[in-house]
Design a protein around this nucleic acid. Sequence first.
DNA 1: ACCTGAACACCGTTCAAGT
DNA 2: ACCTGAACACCGTTCAAGT
Lengths: 201, 201
Amino acid sequence: MPLSPEGIYATALKLIEADGIEALTVRRLGTELDANPMSLYHHVENKEAVLRGVAQHVASQFRPPAQPGLGWQEQLRELATSFRAFAHRYPQVMAYSLTSPDFVQSDFPFWVALVDNLRAAQVPEHRLSRVGAALTAVFTGLLVAELNGALRQWASLRTSPATPGEDGPANAPEADVEAIFRHCIEAAISDLESQLGARQT
Amino acid sequence: MPLSPEGIYATALKLIEADGIEALTVRRLGTELDANPMSLYHHVENKEAVLRGVAQHVASQFRPPAQPGLGWQEQLRELATSFRAFAHRYPQVMAYSLTSPDFVQSDFPFWVALVDNLRAAQVPEHRLSRVGAALTAVFTGLLVAELNGALRQWASLRTSPATPGEDGPANAPEADVEAIFRHCIEAAISDLESQLGARQT
DNA sequence: ACCTGAACACCGTTCAAGT
DNA sequence: ACCTGAACACCGTTCAAGT
């Protein structure tokens, strides 16, 4: 099959998920595509463009859950949960993408759905983008920390002063990470509810 | 002056803050030190070790504010504020460090102070590390998003459906970023307070 | 229009040879 | 013990030459 931007992004994605982002090389990408590495430059501007393409290719696959009957609280929970599950399917690419400012755009389904939920929670129009930005930052922060293993490590850090010797188990159980996520989502919902209450008074 | 690990880390830090993390090169680092680039390998294991050294060199400079008279709420606010101000002094290195799992260790002053505050807030001993990990993830997530410009961009994202044309101003004012930080810190404190209340009932 | 190979300007790292 | 220069195995990218 002939080379195409889509095909290049797809096998770049495969390579990244298999061996990590730093293993992506124009030359390796070329040989993986059974092509002369230099041929890629006829279909793609440069390596940076490949990375952008992969990120966008992945991002476009996310579909927020549409459950019209539910309240905004439950919708927010669902949105967060499904985006997290989505991120787990492409951990390497997502850990990379989520630390780039350009990944979340106005037309990114996650953002659109988030703003809808916030409107349903009666966040005033002029605060929508600020509240959305805050939630996005907090949520992607948690997600990145989970994807690169930091969250798990932090959850097993020593909390007593300086007992020199072992530092406890190296990694907290996956259940802790789950619990942290759930708790933070609930805390965010409570925070929104308390703002709602304050306005209605 | 002769080469030394400390000296190498110091000028690596200078180079990174001046031109970004990707501009750090063993060869450039050598010439910047008026030395043959190959000489560095006698003092430092490799480039990765230089990066680790820089991160640790910077981390060791953070001192949490010690204000014994204050309540845990105010102490937490101070801790977050002072760590954020610290991060702003080394934005490039911190944006890099904070996305690495190893930056926050049991003996990192931020972690020690955070755990102390949580104990003061009467978080039960067996939950300390989980709550600390959650707060660290949320807070560093916000910080990273601020340092790489994402937070500012998100705060100015379009919130109305598909008015094609301009996407509003490219960047939200710095005041919005401030407000987001403050709000998230307050929300975290409220969350801890509500847990405290729930236990005392 | 698409592909190719050689070449350029860089990397990080090793190592024998020097002092 | 420390330094050095050449060399190795890689990068990303350009470009003239081919089909």
